[in-house]
Simulated scan of single mutants.
Amino acid sequence: MELHESLSQRVGVLLSACHDVLATAESCTGGGIATAITAIAGSSAWFDRAFVTYSNEAKMEMLGVQPETLTKWGAVSEATAREMAEGAVQHSRASIAISVSGIAGPGGGSAEKPVGTVCFAWKAQSGWEKIETVHFSGDRTQIRSQAVYHALKTLHDYLEERLAE
């Protein structure tokens, strides 16, 4: 947890420097990214809200994920992650969003999408977008922790690069 807090602190400094506000749309992490962010005093200056959309219904109702996307690609897909991030920006005051949907285990995996498969999307109103699937290993707690770290680290790296330009 200390590792997440240190990274969250750095993300907050960068978000403030870039005049950005963050929202999260989380499934398998269950609000873990938002927890890491809000552990930082003063995060209300650069964090707007979190959508914990564990069910497909929540993804559709709260974020506007299309039923067709879920039917065709499934909840754990880059297409769904993209729509989750887009929805988080559209349904908040945020200028940038992180979304995550995955299979933390111990069950729920398949040959095509084994336990540890996590899809991410980052979306900024400025036009920046990144979508990727990562395969983590470990137990449920470890997979979720790695997903939180990866989500924040990718955002950190993007913001740091943007400031350097």
Results as ranks from 00 to 15, higher is better:
A58D: 02
W122R: 09
T133M: 11
A121R: 07
M1W: 02
H135T: 11
P106N: 05
K113P: 07
H135V: 10
T141N: 12
Q9L: 15
T117G: 05
T141G: 01
T133K: 14
G127L: 09
K123G: 03
R10H: 11
V134N: 01
W73M: 06
A41F: 00
A39Q: 14
S99T: 07
L70R: 11
K59D: 11
I37Q: 03
A39F: 02
I40P: 13
L7D: 13
G102V: 08
G107A: 12
E57I: 06
E161Q: 14
K153P: 00
K72V: 11
L63M: 10
S92P: 04
E26I: 08
H19C: 12
T69L: 07
L155K: 05
A39D: 15
A151W: 04
S16T: 15
I96R: 00
V21A: 03
T35N: 15
I143A: 07
I40S: 06
V13L: 13
A45L: 12
V52C: 14
S44A: 14
N56T: 10
C119M: 01
S55W: 08
S101F: 01
A50Y: 01
V100D: 01
E112V: 02
L63D: 03
A17M: 10
K130T: 10
A121Q: 12
E2S: 13
K130L: 14
E57N: 13
K59C: 07
F51I: 09
G31T: 11
T38S: 11
T24R: 07
A25K: 02
Q125F: 00
A17R: 15
D139K: 12
S43H: 09
K72M: 09
A34T: 09
V148Y: 03
E26G: 11
S8E: 09
D157H: 11
I96C: 05
A17S: 14
V100M: 04
G116K: 09
T141C: 04
T35W: 10
